[in-house]
Each structure stands twice: as structure tokens, then as C-alpha cells.
């Protein structure tokens, strides 16, 4: 790929730059990752497996998976819908919609969590109404799902918007002239074009959904074995001086990240697809 004359920097400068980048990656990314696994196995496999088999840990895993299983599909639907609307049509409020999609990136997760407490607590805006119907939102599963959805809302849309904008609507227009209807166009023309970007967005969304701490921490109530997600459970264990157990659970999150990365690379490798989306 490198063509002589493309870069004017000398070999030494290039080596230095690459070396620095490698060092930073090693220090900031690889070392912590390695440390998680080493710390988790410090007391041996038995402690490691026992801490994953613990009732509270299992409940945390279940809760995390449930929250992701609900929020990721819904955010995928919203994300595809939003990206479709924003890139294929021109309408009033389009710019506003694009900014709103980015809102969760801009707002601190803690603030997001507190807003939901404000809305759904007994003294909050909807508190009385929820009380009447005996519904529980914050400090329970629905609140955790809502907080997760808020935080992971932009991932799919942000992945798709640049992709769909770059592709334009020529193919869709061609489909229209050939007599295709809206839903048909989406499934047969748009979706095949964006599927890899979509998959990538879903993976990112999922990784964040399972790893979210701040917003979920505010609405969780930290009930052991009930409303602690995996990241919250890690914190609880750490605070109880159960360092090996804390890191054992952290390895689950780290493994999830690695698997996500692996799937993403595999997709790119086997399809020869190169990903162009950016945030």
C-alpha cells in the first residue's frame, strides 16, 4: 500500500511514531486487559469458578443479558428507522432529530439516571400514576432497561447515518421506478446495502449495553442478587475486598469485549468489507 513519496517523513520519524503508538496501546489497552485476567486467576481456578457460580453473580449475569436482550433490539429498530428517515428524506426538524440522536453521547450517564429518578420516583412526575397501577420502574428491571436504552440509543443510528448518506438514494429511486413499494424497497435494496454497518452498530450497542455503569448505577438501588448488573456487581465485590471474585466477574465483561472485537474482525475478514462508519 505505501507508495514512495506519499509520506515525506524519514524512516526514523515513522518508526518513532509507530513505536509511540504501540507503547500507548500496550500501556493503556493491553496491560489493563492482561491485569484483569491475572488478578482474576491469582487465587486459582477454583476461586475463579466459584465466584462466577455464586448466586449473586449469576443473577447479575442474567440481569445484564436481559437488559441487553431488550434494549439492543429496540435500539436497532429505532436506529435503522432514524437513519432511514434522516438520510433518505428531507423534512422539517431533520437537523434537530440528528442532534437529538447524539444527545445521549453528550449527556453524562449519571445525569440521565437522575432524570429517570426524577420522572419515575414516587414524588416524580409519573410517580402517582405508576403507584395507581402498582408499576415499579426505578430500582427495578424496567428502570435499568430504560437507562440502558438511553445510553446506547445513538450507536446504531450513528453507525448507519454516514453509510446511508454516502450511498445516497439512487438505488431506492431506481426501485421506485421499477414499481417497488416502501417496505419492499427497504428489505430488498436498503437493508442489504447497510447490513454490515448495521451489524457493527448492533455489536457496539450490545457491548455498551452490557458494560454501562453510571446511568444504571443511579436507577439500580443496588439490591444484591436482584438489581445489580454485572458491572455493578463487580463494584460491590471490589468494595467487599473480594478482589479475585471482582476480577473474575470483570473477565466476563472483558471476554465479551474480546468476542465482540473478534466477531467484528471476522466479519471484515470474510466479507472483504472495509468499514467506513465513524462517530
Amino acid at each position: 500500500m505505501s507508495h514512495p513519496g506519499v509520506t515525506t517523513e524519514s524512516r526514523l520519524v515513522r518508526m518513532l511514531l509507530i513505536g509511540t503508538a504501540g507503547l500507548i496501546v500496550g500501556l493503556l489497552l493491553l496491560m489493563p486487559l492482561l491485569a484483569v485476567f491475572i488478578e482474576a486467576l491469582r487465587k486459582g481456578w477454583e476461586v475463579f469458578l466459584a465466584s462466577l457460580h455464586d448466586e449473586a453473580a449469576l443473577s447479575a449475569v442474567k440481569l445484564t443479558l436481559t437488559a441487553a436482550a431488550v434494549s439492543v433490539p429496540l435500539n436497532t429498530l429505532f436506529g435503522v428507522g432514524a437513519a432511514w428517515a434522516v438520510t433518505k428524506f428531507r423534512f422539517k426538524g431533520r437537523a434537530l432529530l440528528i442532534s437529538l440522536i447524539d444527545l445521549p453521547f453528550a449527556v453524562s450517564p449519571v445525569i440521565a439516571g437522575l432524570v429517570f429518578v426524577l420522572l419515575f420516583s414516587p414524588h416524580g412526575w409519573f410517580g402517582r400514576w405508576l403507584e395507581e397501577y402498582d408499576l415499579k420502574v426505578i430500582f427495578a428491571l424496567p428502570g435499568i432497561i430504560i437507562a440502558t436504552m438511553f445510553v446506547t440509543f445513538p450507536f446504531v443510528a450513528r453507525e448507519l447515518i454516514p453509510l446511508m448518506a454516502a450511498q445516497g438514494s439512487d438505488q431506492e429511486e431506481a426501485a421506485v421506478t421499477l414499481g417497488a413499494r416502501g417496505w419492499q424497497i427497504f428489505l430488498r435494496v436498503t437493508l442489504p446495502n447497510i447490513k454490515w454497518g448495521l451489524l457493527y452498530g448492533v455489536l457496539l450497542c450490545n457491548a455498551r449495553a452490557m458494560g454501562e455503569f453510571g446511568a444504571v448505577s443511579v436507577v439500580s438501588g443496588h439490591i444484591r442478587g436482584e438489581t445489580n448488573t454485572l458491572p455493578l456487581h463487580v463494584e460491590v465485590l471490589y468494595n467487599e475486598y473480594q478482589f479475585s471474585a471482582a476480577f473474575a466477574c470483570a473477565t466476563l465483561l472483558a471476554l465479551l469485549a474480546l468476542v465482540t472485537l473478534g466477531i467484528k474482525s471476522a466479519i471484515e475478514h470474510f466479507t472483504g468489507h472495509r468499514h467506513h462508519g465513524r462517530h
Binding site: 436482550a69 433490539p73 429496540l74 415499579k136 427495578a140 447490513k195
Partner: peptide, 26 residues
């Protein structure tokens, strides 16, 4: 096939979402 698979997956997950949310909140 991909299209159909995805459509099925999307509707399945929507059903799943409702199924999970409804009893959990009640």
C-alpha cells in the same frame, strides 16, 4: 435469505421485548 432472517429476528426480538417488559413491570 439474509433479508428474511433479519426480518424474523427483528420481529422476534420485538415480541421478546414486550414479553420481558410486561411481566417484569407488573
Amino acid at each position: 435469505p439474509f433479508t428474511i432472517g433479519l426480518r424474523a429476528a427483528l420481529s422476534a426480538s420485538a415480541v421478546l421485548a414486550v414479553a420481558l417488559l410486561a411481566p417484569a413491570s407488573c
